[in-house]
Write a protein that binds this DNA or RNA. Sequence first.
DNA 1: TCTCGCATGTAACGTGTTACATGATTCC
DNA 2: GGAATCATGTAACACGTTACATGCGAGA
Lengths: 195, 195
Amino acid sequence: MDTKTLCLGVLSRGEASGYEIKRHLEEYFRHFFQASYGSIYPALAHLTDDALVTCESRSQEKRPDKKVYRITAQGRLALVKDLFNPPGADKIRSEFLVTMLFFELLPLAHLNRVIDDYLTANRDFLASVEDCPVTDPGHEFVTGFGRAVHGAIVDYLEDNRHLVEGAALTAQARGLVESGGLPARAPQEVEDRHA
Amino acid sequence: MDTKTLCLGVLSRGEASGYEIKRHLEEYFRHFFQASYGSIYPALAHLTDDALVTCESRSQEKRPDKKVYRITAQGRLALVKDLFNPPGADKIRSEFLVTMLFFELLPLAHLNRVIDDYLTANRDFLASVEDCPVTDPGHEFVTGFGRAVHGAIVDYLEDNRHLVEGAALTAQARGLVESGGLPARAPQEVEDRHA
DNA sequence: TCTCGCATGTAACGTGTTACATGATTCC
DNA sequence: GGAATCATGTAACACGTTACATGCGAGA
């Protein structure tokens, strides 16, 4: 399953240009599949070669030409075949979690910022999902899934960021003591953060 | 951030061979970063070229030689530098969710199976996490994160699989009616499933 | 004027996966 | 006898990202 399948899927619901497919993917797939023009346009070219889609150029006034793609009968068949394969395990790559795993190498202030940013990104995602009208049961299911996961992430971070931040704080305080600094204020600061 | 960083991270906690790094990554990172030998061994070779790690061959009796890698001072510096970069957004690719989005192209029985399998995989993950002893705060945080996310997924699927399964069922029943079949038993079956 | 949205594409590059190749030991 | 674990690596292949290249119109 790759960008080609995604394009076929979008086209199975109606004709579209490469640009429109990108918009569509951004709206519905963003949180579990990413695709850039650099993968969409080559995918569309490949699908056209294989006669899984047809392409019609429409000249527009005051706009660049638009290439409208439509799925063919063979394309629908190929899509169903592909969807019939048992889906592979989710592939996840989270630089955030790698950073957390090695948090002891980072200063507390940096850690705070990284966690704040990650929380903000997740909250933004949740907010953006609310504005998005649901079109069909598949979309509703997938959107709800995203809401559930990102909601769980936000809750978890709010309740458990102290695990790493607390450890980073003590490590930092220890460092200050060893170097003759004054660790006295630091614990107070963290109390404020979470008050 | 790539496999090289991961290897440096593991080595920052002690010497290890390529094989051991793989085991370690599987144990701690599996749910948010995957790495195969095909990426680990070349990464290690590259790190050695850059003097970020050193490599020592140890001959073993009754075993193939082992190459033990150790991080250097420059390696530690490179790791910290890398960890200091603001982590990029999580990259997720879920074939399962793509399948759900286009569920209307699949027969109900197949849909049931796919969802059952996905649920099983998530429950297995949760169970395997319970057996895994926690070693440090970073590990604890990251493991708890995985538990929160996969727990939310299991709960969501249990409560909401009817969204797609119900729609698939009505679509299938409509198809049967149109083709002159007998749709009468199907609704009963689904009642049983979720009883 | 400048940025944003519409609109299409390519080329270089990086990175990872899969399959292949080898080989001994231990446990069932 | 066969599978699993320990152990290392390469080569071909697939795939995707990023930056680059081009160009008009509308609105601030």
